[in-house]
Design a protein around this nucleic acid. Structure first.
Lengths: 164, 164
DNA sequence: TATTGTTATACTCTATAACTATA
DNA sequence: TATAGTTATAGAGTATAACAATA
C-alpha cells in the first residue's frame, strides 16, 4: 500500500504539474525570487527596491510613470518604493524642467554604489542556484523567456507578489 | 531629446531587466497566470482552485498535507481552497481508515468533469499566448524549468501570490 | 479637460499561532 | 509527545478612488 506521507502523483506516477508551464514558472520564480530577496535584504533592500534602484542607477533619468510601465509596477506601488529609496538617500526626485508635473528620478552616488554591490550579491545567488543548468542552457532559458516577456506579455498587467 | 513618455532604458538602449532571469520569470509567470486565471474563472474557479482540483482529479487520493507539499501550498491556504471545492460539490474529504487524523481528498464525478473542461480551456489559452514559440522551443522551456523546479527549488518555500 | 504623482482606504491574501482530534 | 487539520487573527501588499498640481 502507498505510504500516507507520499506526495500526490498522477496515473503515470509523475508529479501532477510536471508539464504545466504556468505552475513551473511560478514555482521557479518563487524559489529564485525569495533567494534573491534574501540576498538583496543583506543590503537593506527588498528585491523590488533592488529592481527599482538598479533601473534608476543604470538607466537614463525618467519619469515615475515610465519607470513603472517598464518594470510592470503600479504607480502607487512605485511611490512607496521611491519614498523608501529617497528616505535612505539612494535616490533623488527632482521636478522635470520641461513638465513640472513629472518628477525625474536619479540615483545618488551612494545609490549607485549600493546598486552595484547588491547586484553582485544577487547575481552570485543566482549562479549558485543555477548550477543545475549548463551556461548555454541558462542563456537559452533567458532567450526563450525574453521572447515571451517582450512579445505577448509586453503589456500584461502589473506583477503582483513581492518578488518583483 | 528623448521623449518624456519613453520607458527607462539602460546605456545600451536595452530594457534594464532584459537579461534578468528573476524579472523575466516573474513577468512571464504573471502574464500567463492572469490569462489562465481568467480562463479558469469562466468555469467558476481561480487558477489555484483549478490547480488543486486537477491534482485531486488526476491523482491518487492523498492527504491534504501531501497535496500541499506537492503543490507548494501552505496547509492553511489549502484548507480554504478545499472548503470552496467541497462546498461546490467538486471534491469530498473523508477520514482515512488507516489514520483518522488525516482526511483523504477525492474528486466527485462533477469535479472530474469540471477539471477536464477547465483544463481544455486553460491549455487553449496557453497555446494562444505561446504562439511566439515554436513547439520544440515550448518543450525546451518546460524541460529547462523542470530541471530547476525539481532540482534546486524542490523544497523551496510555498508559492505566494494568487496565480498558483 | 487630461495627466503626473500622492494620499487614504478598503480589500485580498498569506502565514502564525492556538486549538481539536487522533496517534 | 507529535502529527493532521481547522480556525482566528494580524500583517503585508495591492489596487481603487479621490485629490493636488500642472499642462
Amino acid at each position: 500500500m502507498a505510504t500516507s506521507t507520499s506526495a500526490a502523483r498522477n496515473s503515470s506516477g509523475e508529479h501532477p504539474f510536471a508539464t504545466d508551464l504556468n505552475w513551473l514558472l511560478h514555482r521557479v520564480a518563487a524559489g529564485l525570487g525569495s533567494a534573491q530577496d534574501e540576498a538583496a535584504r543583506r543590503h537593506g533592500l527588498g528585491v523590488r527596491d533592488y529592481a527599482v534602484l538598479r533601473t534608476i542607477a543604470e538607466g537614463t533619468p525618467t519619469s515615475q510613470l515610465a519607470l513603472g510601465k517598464d518594470l510592470g509596477l503600479d504607480k502607487t506601488t512605485l511611490t512607496a518604493v521611491l519614498d523608501r529609496l529617497e528616505g535612505a538617500g539612494l535616490v533623488v526626485r527632482r521636478p522635470a524642467a520641461s513638465d513640472r508635473r513629472t518628477r525625474v528620478c536619479e540615483a545618488t552616488e551612494s545609490g549607485r554604489d549600493l546598486a552595484d554591490r547588491a547586484a553582485k550579491d544577487v547575481s552570485l545567488t543566482e549562479q549558485e542556484l543555477l548550477v543545475a543548468l549548463k551556461p548555454e542552457e541558462h542563456r537559452l532559458l533567458v532567450t526563450l523567456l525574453r521572447e515571451l516577456a517582450f512579445g505577448p506579455f509586453a503589456d500584461a498587467a502589473p506583477v503582483s507578489g513581492s518578488c518583483i
